[in-house]
């Protein structure tokens, strides 16, 4: 009796934690069979490239959501840091300086978010909605509302070069997944993040420095969004003030699809990776099937609804 109860619990555990991976595998197989060109090396690389921006930011969004907060500002951060990089490169002629200032610009946005939320006690949703507007505006102001072309070809290498036959941004994405996966699973920072999301008050009483942890989470989020923004600018060979609009929702969808709880306290890196890939796979397949962009919005919204429903089902199970 006891034995069957534990096997049952194991199956339930597997279902609760890995259901999305099964869904991913099945989707992948079906698409490979039914969508022409889907399962080709070229398309696989294209798919991976298309999720680089979402994926890089999903790493840190996982921490923000895991700690029980939202970050809506990432889309504007991407644009703002891309513009910053472009403007600095054009002004100084230094690629390195451009990259660094782009990333720092992102970190700056994150620091403002973190400080306002942790120290001033502002609501995360509203704070990041405000900074989203502010830094979208800043991107337009810095660029005079136009795309800023970049004069240094060296900068384009970041986004368009290959290492061992695989585009550099994909390598960066993979490395970021590894680093943040280790941070989540194997460090105090990761565990504290989930403890805060699980029960902030109890986490504080257990000696976790909640404010500092939150500031770190949001600042890291800013840096990664900044980094993603710089890579995007490099791939587009220019800084675009209206880049990445609505990106924050794609990132959050990917995380929720990957089983990150919107109430905080639950997150896995494997889930997030799969979530990101599913988001990419859906757009990729729709593109291959020549489905018009308008319909793609509908499909992506539907996927988000399904993801949240899965999240609720899982919580009911517990």
């Amino acid at each position: 009796m006891n034995n069957s109860a534990t096997t049952q619990s194991k199956i339930k555990y597997l279902y609760n934690n890995y259901s999305i991976i099964f869904i991913f595998v099945i989707m992948f197989i079906l698409l490979s069979i039914f969508v022409p060109y889907f399962f080709t090396w070229r398309n696989m690389l294209g798919l991976a490239l298309s999720v680089v921006t979402i994926g890089i930011i999903a790493n840190t969004m996982m921490f923000a959501l895991g700690s029980g907060d939202f970050d809506l500002s990432v889309s504007s951060t991407v644009a703002f840091s891309g513009i910053t990089a472009a403007v600095v490169i054009n002004a100084t002629g230094s690629v390195i300086l451009g990259i660094v200032s782009g990333i720092l610009a992102g970190g700056f946005v994150g620091l403002i978010n973190g400080y306002s939320i942790a120290k001033l006690g502002l609501n995360a949703l509203i704070t990041t909605l405000a900074t989203q507007m502010i830094f979208r505006g800043m991107a337009f102001i810095l660029s005079n509302g136009r795309a800023v072309g970049i004069s240094k070809a060296g900068f384009f290498k970041l986004g368009n070069s290959m290492i061992f036959g695989i585009p550099t941004p994909i390598w960066i994405l993979i490395i970021s997944f590894i680093i943040f996966g280790i941070l989540l699973n194997n460090t105090v920072f990761g565990k504290n993040t989930l403890a805060i999301g699980g029960n902030t008050k109890a986490a504080e009483l257990a000696g976790i420095n909640v404010n500092i942890t939150k500031i770190i989470i949001f600042t890291a989020q800013g840096f990664m969004a900044g980094f993603a923004g710089v890579i995007l600018a490099s791939r587009m060979t220019s800084g675009q003030p209206n880049a990445a609009q609505g990106l924050e929702l794609d990132v959050i969808s990917a995380c929720v699809l990957g089983g990150v709880s919107l109430n905080g306290g639950i997150a896995t890196i494997s889930g997030v990776i799969v979530g990101v890939l599913i988001m990419g796979m859906i757009s990729n397949a729709l593109n291959l099937l020549n489905v018009a962009t308008f319909y793609q919005y509908v499909v992506r919204g539907a996927v988000l609804l399904i993801a949240i429903y899965l999240d609720i089902l899982k919580q009911r199970n517990q």
């Binding site: 565990k191 403890a195 699980g198 029960n199 008050k201 109890a202 986490a203 257990a206 000696g207 709880s261």
Partner: peptide, 18 residues
């Protein structure tokens, strides 16, 4: 419940949190 345990994390994590 409100200030002590982190209910949605495991017993092991609650013990080791500090």
């Amino acid at each position: 419940k409100e200030e002590g345990i982190i209910g949605i994390r495991s017993v092991s994590e609650n013990i080791n949190v500090s």
